[in-house]
Nucleic acid binder design. Structure first.
Lengths: 196, 196
DNA sequence: GCTGTTCTTGACTGTCTAGTCCAGAACCTA
DNA sequence: TAGGTTCTGGACTAGACAGTCAAGAACAGC
């Protein structure tokens, strides 16, 4: 029928996400995104609307990928649930610590910058947090069934606590907190989980 | 000698801080800050240099006030230490939940937006976090001496965990997490502290 | 190959904004 | 009150940036 797109939408969104990620939303320039993707601005505007919508698409994709990553890390049989939980929490601490450019997580950065002014951003963030908490709760419940965490504890509440700890590690990482401190937080969080 | 300043520097910094707070650094306009303070831009630039330095001053002042607030909340005799800790953590959760405009804490917002690009911001954030952790550790140690927290636990590690939980609550609050959830996180964090 | 449609490119526009500058005001000291 | 100094206000500048647009390119169907 007509001339087809010469670019891969997902790839463009990934590049755009990286730009927003490093500079923040307000400081990101559409010209830079166009240059980084190799597209003209017309194509960008034609495909995504305006800067805000481009961000929202990139932000949503990023959050979905994040949840998917957590799912891969935590899903599985009850038997290894506690170990998966432990590995995931330590991995987040280590990844945060080794993020040299301190850009942290786009979810945190975007939410901090925009959720107060853009309900769509707040809604995506809320959904993402809820999804992660759900995955944590399932994993905690698995560990309870496997006898690694006290069965009397409320898995949802423990998951909420762990979510807060993870987001806290993220936040502290942006201040260039030492890798040791971040790891200590993760280990302490695991240590205080009620054992059977 | 010469004409004296017609404005109070601290008051101007407070107003500027509020502007940065609501919109973020990049989106804040110097013209708006000038209008909000009632000053001409010449006075603003004469007194503070440029936008970045104005922000750094406001940010530093805010962080110092924050630490001072935590100190007031947590300092005191061993006897009431645990209760002060408990009250403070619940108060942070409630304050975060009732922040209707979701602007959160300027410390978190400024750090998220700028620490990757401005070492001065990262340094202030790191100092502030360390100070708060120190205050938490002292309070935990007091509660240990008062027999409310297990004496075998490392107060610094518990303080690190609590700091992460507090920052996590802050981060989740920006996504408009329900007041109940935030309070549940705070209560769970308190519940998992090791008792004697 | 022709036609109609959609995509691409990048120059262009209008607006916004950080920072400058200067003329005059306010104040202090003597 | 005179003189020197700093402060004030706001007009001005230069550059940056989001978003538009028109001319042509690439393709599918015929």
């Amino acid at each position: 029928m007509a001339r087809p797109r010469s670019f891969d939408e997902d790839e463009v969104l990934r590049v755009a996400r990286d730009q927003f990620w490093t500079t923040g939303y307000a400081a990101a320039r559409v010209d830079d995104i166009a240059a980084a993707t190799g597209l003209g601005k017309g194509s960008l505007y034609g495909a995504f609307g305006d800067k805000r919508h481009l961000f929202l698409r990139a932000f949503d994709d990023h959050c979905a990928a994040l949840v998917e990553g957590v799912r891969r890390a935590l899903d599985g049989p009850d038997a290894g649930a506690y170990e998966r939980l432990r590995a995931h929490i330590l991995a987040v601490a280590d990844a945060t610590a080794s993020d040299v450019c301190l850009r942290g997580c786009l979810l945190a950065k975007g939410t901090a910058e925009l959720s107060g002014q853009d309900p769509a951003v707040a809604a995506t963030a809320r959904r993402t947090f809820a999804a992660i908490q759900g995955l944590l709760a399932s994993c905690v419940a698995g560990a309870q069934r496997a006898g690694e965490i006290d069965r009397d504890a409320d898995p949802d509440r423990l998951a909420g606590l762990l979510l807060a700890v993870l987001r806290g590690i993220e936040a502290l990482g942006k201040a260039d907190t030492s890798p040791d401190s971040l790891r200590a937080i993760a280990e302490t969080a695991l240590a205080v989980l009620p054992r059977p």
